[in-house]
């Protein structure tokens, strides 16, 4: 399970620029991590010096980038087989695998040590755990082994708000873990919607994603089940002192749209074998697009929904708006 596949070590292509090294850190993933971590820092409503606040978010971002570089080193063989990832610096031959690994290790150490020295060691410990969980547990073990890869591995992407909260206060109360739970439960429907229309890529690379192993119908059902669990959890912060009226409105209205899209996807043929064909039949091609469209819609809206939830929390906490009067005290 932990065996390393033959790595792509060639660096004979065009010489690597600094942008290729930045690419190793998955800047788009980093931007989401920065946003959720910042929300964790601000939602803690602690009196933290702005410089230390910025350092906390920077450490979490660099830690996320480091685990991205380690992932790109280890997964170069898989990335080379998938259309979405084959242009990444290691499979493209721009950066040697060993250099990506070195960058990942050095940045991991720097981010954890700086977090510990500038903020506190609880936050540093959570950051170290997140990096190790993503790079070792998810990348080296779960991803190639189990259909539950992104469900369990999603914990790494879910932890930044708790790290941010811990950095601001030195503790991680239940409200911080509620933010983690939201991202954790959001990850499966988000990624499975994507994998429904990219499953040929995953199958070719030998990654046991749900649609590849259990089929599209089962995936659509599991997306619906996870969505039904996710939405009440997304609304919960309005009752625990984390979110106020704005949050309540955003989470309920967005949640209804989310459930509608998940219901439509369940009723669609997205990811079915017929959808995979690219025959000459015009009707069939139309059916392909119609099926994929429902998966694409849920995938796109899931990103918007998560962004809106955290934006609402961030705005309310930054503006100092009081939580609702019916609060169940969690922190």
């Amino acid at each position: 399970m932990m065996s390393k596949p033959a790595a792509i070590e060639t660096a004979e292509a065009a010489p690597a620029s600094w942008r290729d090294y930045l690419q190793l850190m998955k800047p788009r993933v980093m931007s989401l991590v920065v946003f959720t971590a910042l929300t964790g820092v601000v939602a803690a409503r602690a009196h933290l010096h702005p410089v230390l606040m910025a350092v906390a978010v920077l450490c979490i971002a660099v830690g996320a980038g480091a685990s991205g570089a380690l992932n790109m080193w280890f997964d170069a063989d898989i990335d080379a087989k998938m259309r979405r990832t084959r242009a990444r610096p290691v499979p493209a031959g721009k950066v040697a695998g060993a250099e990506a690994a070195s960058l990942g290790v050095v940045l991991s150490l720097l981010s954890v040590m700086l977090m510990g020295m500038a903020l506190n060691w609880l936050a540093a410990g959570l950051l170290a755990f997140t990096i190790l969980f993503y790079a070792v547990v998810y990348t080296m073990w779960l991803k190639r082994w189990t259909v539950q890869n992104i469900v369990i591995g999603g914990l790494a992407g879910a932890l930044p708000p708790a790290i941010g909260w811990a950095a601001a206060t030195g503790e991680a109360p239940l409200n911080a873990w509620l933010m983690v739970l939201i991202i954790f439960l959001w990850t499966p429907p988000h990624f499975w919607a994507l994998s429904l229309y990219t499953k040929q890529d995953y199958a070719k690379a030998g990654v046991p994603m749900l649609p590849v192993v259990k089929g599209a119908k089962n995936t659509r059902l599991q997306i619906l089940i996870y969505s039904l669990i996710l939405i009440p959890v997304c609304v919960a912060p309005a009752f625990t002192g984390l979110g106020g009226l704005l949050y309540l409105v955003v989470s309920v209205l967005g949640g209804l749209v989310f459930l509608t899209l998940a219901g439509r996807l369940f009723a669609s043929r997205a990811g079915d074998e017929a959808d995979d064909r690219t025959g000459e039949n015009g009707d069939l091609l139309y059916a392909v697009r119609a099926g994929s469209k429902d998966a694409r819609n849920l995938f796109a809206f899931s990103i918007l929904y998560l962004f809106l939830l955290f934006a609402a929390m961030l705005v309310e906490a930054a503006a100092g708006l009081s939580p609702m009067h019916w609060v169940i005290k969690l922190s």
Partner: peptide, 10 residues
Amino acid sequence: KARRGRNVAL
């Protein structure tokens, strides 16, 4: 040129 860019970034 690429090496110079990397060195400056570092």
